[in-house]
Design a protein around this nucleic acid. Structure first.
Length: 246
DNA sequence: TGGAATGTTGGAAC
DNA sequence: CGTTCCAACATTCC
């Protein structure tokens, strides 16, 4: 469940555990999860693809799902070992195949919430400033930069570039400023659209280009590049209606 | 059915 | 010493 909106959805689903005591801690994580025992849940936050569970002992559990991670709330997955399971007095949350780490100290010092496209504190003007430092990079790489667009993943990248009609191989510095601003705006708008489609279990059927073969605008074959950019991620795009700026 | 993917880190290699 | 490359992680889907 890797991209930012999926983490926001999970965060919503476990809000009811805030303020509740931990009854038992399970799992094969080597992060020292016994530190969770005897605490209660103080708060639940997210930053980009990070799920952050703050505890009453002032530690925060940071969950990152990487590519394959998953979770289940108030049930266990069959035939799977939990990486981390937390039993509360009103339910349980289980995490599988994810990275578990502990953070110490004030989250506000550790995270810049204004770079999270899903955050109330999202700052589009700041994103624009940061992008100026990356004008020599391809736009497909810049959109995946978690310091600029925290929470944007490969699906959101492909869909936003299609929606804004920009070829992923475009050189960032050559894209007109108004279009850079449009990309920044849509990275947030589309992420919230992604959230609502995911919530309604209709995300995948709403992909326009990601994993698709035909351009829904031009009705011609899409281009698929397997390892595009310095991040070497899959790109799906239309060579006709997505303009290349070089 | 096997290969690849909604991702990141850390260490080796250059 | 900076950068770039690669393995590792480990599950689901087509």
């Amino acid at each position: 469940m890797p991209e930012g909106p999926s983490i926001v959805l999970l965060k919503e689903q476990i809000q009811g555990f805030i303020g509740h005591p931990v009854i038992n801690v399970r799992g094969n994580s080597k992060a020292g999860i016994d530190k969770i025992e005897g605490t209660s849940i103080k708060g639940i936050h997210s930053w980009g693809k990070h799920l952050l569970i703050s505890l009453s002992n002032d530690l925060t559990v940071k969950i990152h799902f990487m590519l394959f991670g998953s979770s289940s709330v108030n049930e266990k997955k069959q035939n799977r070992n939990e990486r981390l399971g937390i039993d509360l007095d009103n339910g349980e949350i289980n995490f599988y195949a994810c990275s578990v780490k502990f953070l110490e100290g004030d989250l506000n010092e550790l995270y810049d919430w204004s770079s999270d496209v899903m955050s109330d504190s999202w700052n589009a003007a700041l994103a624009f400033k940061k992008i100026k430092q990356h004008e020599g990079e391809l736009i497909c790489d810049v959109l995946l930069d978690q310091e600029i667009f925290s929470g944007v993943g490969n699906i959101i990248k492909n869909e936003v570039l299609f929606r804004k009609r920009i070829n992923p191989e475009s050189l960032t510095g050559k894209i007109p400023k108004n279009l850079i601003k449009a990309i920044i705006q849509d990275s947030r708008d589309y992420s919230f659209q992604f959230l609502e489609w995911k919530r309604a279990f209709v995300l995948k059927k709403n992909y326009q280009v990601h994993t698709k073969k035909i351009c829904p605008r031009c009705n011609i074959p899409l281009i698929k590049k397997q390892h595009l950019g310095s991040r070497k991620r899959r790109a799906f795009f239309c060579g006709n209606c997505q303009h290349l700026y070089i």
